[in-house]
C-alpha cells in the first residue's frame, strides 16, 4: 500500500506573503532613486561608500553570527538595508576604514550583541553612525570630505543656516540633492520612496507622519532661532523639512520595526517626540547635523515605556 504522508501544521493555512526579506529589499528599492541621485552628484566616491557599506555590513553580520553559532541570515537583506541607510547618512569621500568601522559598529554593537533582528533596543544604523560621528567627527564633516571633489565648496545646508547665510541655500538643491551633505540628501526622492512604503503598509506610517508633524511644530515654534542672533532673515520651513536627513529619519530610521513602539498612540507620540527633539537639537544643539539621529535615538529609549499606552482589549472592559 502506498503511504501518503500529509503535511500537518497549525492554522492559518494562508499567509499574506509578508516577510523580512521582502520588507528589506523593498526598503532598499525605495531608497534606490535617492541613492542613484547621490551617485549622480557625488560620482564614484558615493558609489564606493554605498558598496563598501553594504558589503561590510553583510560581512559583519555573517561573521558575528558564525562566531555566536547562530544561523547566518544575511539573505534576509536586513544587514544590507542597514548598510545602505548608513551609507546614505555618510558623505561621499568618507575614508574607507571609517566606512568599515561604522558598518561593524552598526551591525555588531547596534544589533548582533543584543541577539540580532528583533532584539536591539536602538536603531542599528544610528548606533553605528553616532559611534563614528563622535569618534572621528572630522572625517564625517561633509564639507571636508567633499573638498577633493570639484564643484563642492562652501557649507552644508544646516551650517549655512546657522551662519545666517540664508541666500546661499537653494530649496531646489535641498530637495533634489547636490548640496554639501551626505549621499542621501535628495530629500524629495526619499520622501517619495517612503510614501510608497507607507502605501504598501510596510512601515509604521503613524511614526512617519508624527515625525514630520514634530519637525513642523518645532519649525514653527523655534525654527528661526537656527539663525545667528540678530539676523532678521526668515527660514523657509520646507528647507528645514528636507535638509539634514529629516526624510530619511521620518520614513526609514524612526519607523525601524524593532526599536519603535507598536501601539497606535505610542507610535504617534514616539514619532512626534523624535521629530520635535530632532529640531531642538538642530537649532540649539552642538551636534546640529545629527539632530535627526540623536532625536530618534533618545526617543527610542522610551519606546518600551510608550508601548505601555495601549487600549483595553475587548472583553476586558
Amino acid at each position: 500500500m502506498k503511504e501518503n504522508r500529509l503535511t500537518v501544521s497549525v492554522a492559518p493555512f494562508w499567509h499574506s506573503g509578508a516577510g523580512i526579506a521582502r520588507n528589506s529589499y523593498l526598503g532598499m528599492a525605495a531608497l534606490l532613486p535617492a541613492a542613484a541621485v547621490g551617485v549622480m552628484h557625488y560620482r564614484v566616491g558615493a558609489l564606493a561608500v554605498l558598496g563598501l557599506c553594504i558589503a561590510s555590513s553583510m560581512t559583519a553580520e555573517a561573521l558575528m553570527q558564525k562566531i555566536m553559532g547562530r544561523p547566518v541570515t544575511i539573505g534576509d537583506g536586513s544587514a544590507a538595508l542597514t548598510g545602505m541607510l548608513l551609507a546614505l547618512l555618510l558623505p561621499a569621500g568618507t575614508p574607507w576604514w571609517l566606512v568599515v568601522v561604522g558598518s561593524f559598529c552598526a551591525i555588531i554593537v547596534g544589533k548582533q550583541i543584543y541577539g540580532g533582528i528583533g532584539s536591539h533596543p536602538l536603531n542599528a544604523t544610528l548606533v553605528g553612525w553616532v559611534m563614528i560621528r563622535i569618534s572621528w567627527g572630522v572625517h564625517m564633516d561633509a564639507d571636508a570630505a567633499l573638498a577633493n571633489l570639484p564643484g563642492f565648496s562652501g557649507l552644508s545646508t544646516l551650517a549655512a543656516l546657522r551662519g545666517g547665510y540664508v541666500d546661499a541655500v537653494s530649496l531646489k538643491d535641498v530637495m533634489l540633492g547636490g548640496v554639501i551633505g551626505p549621499i542621501g540628501s535628495a530629500g524629495l526622492l526619499v520622501l517619495i520612496g517612503g510614501l510608497v512604503l507607507c502605501a504598501l503598509r510596510l512601515i509604521k506610517w503613524e511614526v512617519s507622519i508624527g515625525f514630520l508633524g514634530g519637525v513642523l511644530l518645532g519649525c514653527v515654534l523655534f525654527g528661526s532661532r537656527i539663525l545667528p542672533p540678530g539676523s532678521d532673515a526668515s527660514v523657509n520651513p520646507l528647507v528645514m523639512l528636507f535638509a539634514g536627513n529629516v526624510m530619511l529619519g521620518a520614513f526609514f530610521l524612526a519607523p525601524d520595526s524593532t526599536s519603535s513602539p507598536s501601539q497606535p498612540i505610542a507610535m504617534w507620540i514616539y514619532g512626534f517626540g523624535a521629530g520635535l527633539l530632532a529640531m531642538a537639537i538642530r537649532v540649539y544643539g552642538h551636534y546640529y547635523d545629527a539632530g535627526v539621529v540623536f532625536g530618534i535615538l533618545l526617543v527610542s529609549l522610551a519606546g518600551p515605556l510608550l508601548d505601555k499606552i495601549r487600549p483595553t482589549a475587548r472583553g476586558r472592559e
Binding site: 503535511t7 501544521s9 497549525v10 499567509h15 509578508a18 523580512i20 520588507n23 541577539g115 540580532g116 533582528i117 528583533g118 532584539s119 503598509r201 509604521k204 520595526s257 524593532t258 526599536s259 519603535s260 513602539p261 507598536s262 501601539q263 497606535p264 507610535m267 508601548d307 495601549r310 487600549p311 483595553t312 482589549a313 475587548r314 472583553g315
Partner: peptide, 26 residues
Amino acid sequence: LFGYEDAPCIGCGQCIKVCPMKIPVN
C-alpha cells in the same frame, strides 16, 4: 505550501493592527 519559522518577533506591529480584539499580540 508556506512554512512557519522559528524566528524572533521583529516588532513590526502588523498583528496589533489587524487584531479584532485589540490585544497587544506581539
